[in-house]
């Protein structure tokens, strides 16, 4: 019955409000025309896909060694990128290495983005003594050069993937918290926050709607710029022997174990570094593109 009425009543069709092209549409439009950033984004995407589907792409088992085929040059039949010091296929190891290298580079930044934002935003929003105590503590960690802090922590905690992840996360929390705090302090004194408060909004609503909405963008852009540093540092820890253990393929560790081979097969030994370099530069260019597309200052 109701179905019939609804069909018979001449419905007043309210056209859906033409949604104004929002902020994100603008960001995407600007990003699309930034050729360098798009190219970098595609490379990052390919590396991620390579890591995810490593089992299907890699031509050989990355851990199968062969004493007869040690240190083959690039272009050896069956070994397109040569063989490493234990006769394992370099191409397969580089493809599989993307997994751990990406994971160890990206995860700390994301965890630090989450924790650093909480610390920075609450310090900036509540201000006063809480801000002083929190930010001075952050300053202590900020007083260490990042490489030194990462090595100090993982050196004390001991080698291993988990310990590297913990150390790198601790390294990236202070810079993110500082940015979050300074952006939040600026936003907090804006007129619209005052207006929201006057119209009866509680702290929770103000933080959720007004502060986070305006603060997360800049913090996120800053955090993406740290991914490249994090990749280099994470592989650096493995290079020192503080990250993962052999025979797991990881670019930093591969660079370390191949270091003695530079007199025999120099260019094979340098390959893992090329992988780190390409990934790190792509993340950097992608982050630069995001920054200008999102129109973030600083």
């Amino acid at each position: 019955m109701s179905a019939i009425t609804s069909e018979t009543t001449p419905a007043i069709v309210v056209p859906p409000l033409a949604k104004s092209p929002g902020y994100w549409a603008g960001v995407w439009r600007r990003f699309k025309y930034d050729k360098v950033a798009v190219a970098a984004g595609i490379v990052v995407l390919l590396i991620i896909l390579m890591a995810v589907f490593a089992d299907y792409i890699a031509p050989a088992d990355p851990t199968r060694s062969s004493m007869l085929r040690r240190l083959r040059p690039i272009g050896t039949p069956g070994y397109p990128l040569g063989a490493d010091e234990l006769g394992r296929d370099m191409l397969s190891r580089l493809i599989h290495g993307a997994r751990l290298s990406l994971f160890m580079g990206v995860v700390p930044v994301f965890v630090a983005f989450f924790l650093g934002s909480i610390i920075g935003v609450s310090a900036g929003f509540f201000g006063g003594k809480f801000n002083t105590i929190t930010m001075r503590t952050v300053d202590v960690f900020y007083a260490f050069p990042s490489v030194l802090l990462a090595i100090a922590l993982s050196g004390a905690l001991g080698a291993g993937i988990t310990n590297s992840l913990i150390s790198l996360t601790i390294v990236f929390i202070p810079p993110i918290a500082r940015i979050a705090e300074s952006v939040t302090t600026q936003v907090r004194s804006m007129d619209y926050v005052e207006a929201a408060r006057a119209s009866g909004a509680g702290s929770g609503t103000i933080i959720r709607v007004h502060v986070l909405g305006n603060v997360l963008g800049p913090i996120f852009v800053y955090a993406t710029s740290l991914i490249s540093v994090s990749m280099i540092l994470a592989s650096g820890l493995s290079f020192l022997g503080l990250g993962t253990k052999p025979p797991t393929p990881e670019w930093g560790l591969m660079l370390n174990t191949l270091r003695t081979a530079i007199y025999v097969q120099p260019w094979v030994a340098a390959l893992p570094g090329v992988a780190i370099f390409i990934t790190s530069i792509s993340f950097n260019l992608l982050s630069d593109g995001l920054r200008s597309a999102m129109d973030v200052k600083g």
Partner: peptide, 23 residues
């Protein structure tokens, strides 16, 4: 400038050794 901030410097060191010492 972008190359400078993106390069894994320990790898660059190895490449330097390969080029200027080994080769």
């Amino acid at each position: 400038a972008v190359l400078g901030v993106s390069v894994p410097h320990y790898w660059l060191g190895m490449v330097m050794v390969i080029v200027f010492s080994v080769q």
